[in-house]
């Protein structure tokens, strides 16, 4: 059974999914970072594959991607590192990447490697659902990698259900129409949107991401969804000078408000 299903089925507690950029802050930091995250309350990890032109990302993740590429990160090297991760952790792993590097690696080859690293899900924000259905859905099934699609406040009811039907594991709801790392706080409009999603009758559990940077925003998201995805706020907090990257303090703050 896919680890995402296992987690979401048994989780009385809400899922805390932390996004990291592979190869940032240092080339091989992924193993200690995931270990520290798991020890400090993360229950799912989203691994960002660095890309030179991350269109959906704000300055923080853009910068981390740039550094990761300068550190020499590639898709192939990432798969080597994920094998090392799996030696120390069984945490559900979701990869997030832009489509071009995946296409250059070969979509089937990519899914096969992901499967060998026991990756659980894959988010490709710029893969259109129509192309996914036509060309790639059978490959995701063959390698048991869960496809996860994004929905936004602008996504129509009809399309929401379409994207839900194509997704497995969970649906990734973007909290507002923005690039990553815009931290504006949640307004009534956000809450209305979360309410609408929560009562939409989706077949998949809902996870909410983008703009979650505080304990309070995390709790708000937990009121409506099975879990939250925290990216830019975490990347920003990574402190290379500390042996623990400042991870225990960050997680304690965001989860326990301490």
């Amino acid at each position: 059974m896919n680890r995402i299903d296992l987690l979401l089925k048994e989780a009385n507690n809400k899922v805390v999914n932390i996004y990291l950029t592979a190869g940032y802050p240092t080339f091989e930091s992924i193993v200690p970072i995931i270990q520290l995250l798991e020890q400090n309350g993360a229950t799912m990890i989203e691994v960002g594959i660095p890309f030179s032109d991350p269109l959906a990302d704000g300055p923080v993740i853009q910068h981390s991607s740039k550094i990761a590429l300068e550190n020499g990160m590639t898709t192939e090297l990432l798969f080597h590192q994920l094998k090392e991760v799996r030696k120390i952790s069984q945490i559900p792993l979701v990869l997030m990447g832009y489509l071009n590097p995946v296409i250059q690696f070969g979509v089937e080859n990519f899914l096969k490697n992901a499967s060998e690293c026991e990756v659980d899900g894959l988010i490709l924000p710029d893969l259109p659902p129509e192309i996914f259905e036509k060309d790639y859905q059978h490959l995701f099934e063959k390698y048991n990698i869960y496809p996860i699609f994004l929905v936004t406040p602008q996504t129509s009811e009809e399309r929401l259900h379409k994207l839900d039907s194509l997704s497995k594991g969970f649906v990734y709801a973007v909290s507002s129409s923005s690039t990553t790392g815009k931290n504006t706080g949640f307004t009534d409009e956000h809450l209305q949107y979360f309410k609408r999603l929560a009562s939409a009758g989706l077949k998949n559990p809902l996870m909410i991401g983008f703009g979650i940077s505080t304990h309070q925003s995390l709790q708000t998201v937990f009121d409506f969804a099975s879990g939250a995805i925290i990216g830019s706020a975490f990347i920003k907090s990574l402190d290379q000078k500390k042996t623990d990257f400042g991870i225990p303090a960050f997680m304690n703050q965001i989860i326990n408000d301490k």
Binding site: L55, P125, P128, T152, T155, S156, S178
Partner: peptide, 11 residues
């Protein structure tokens, strides 16, 4: 060609 865009641009 095509439209390989994130959902945020779809509408």
């Amino acid at each position: 060609g095509g439209a390989f865009i994130p959902e945020m641009l779809f509408n």
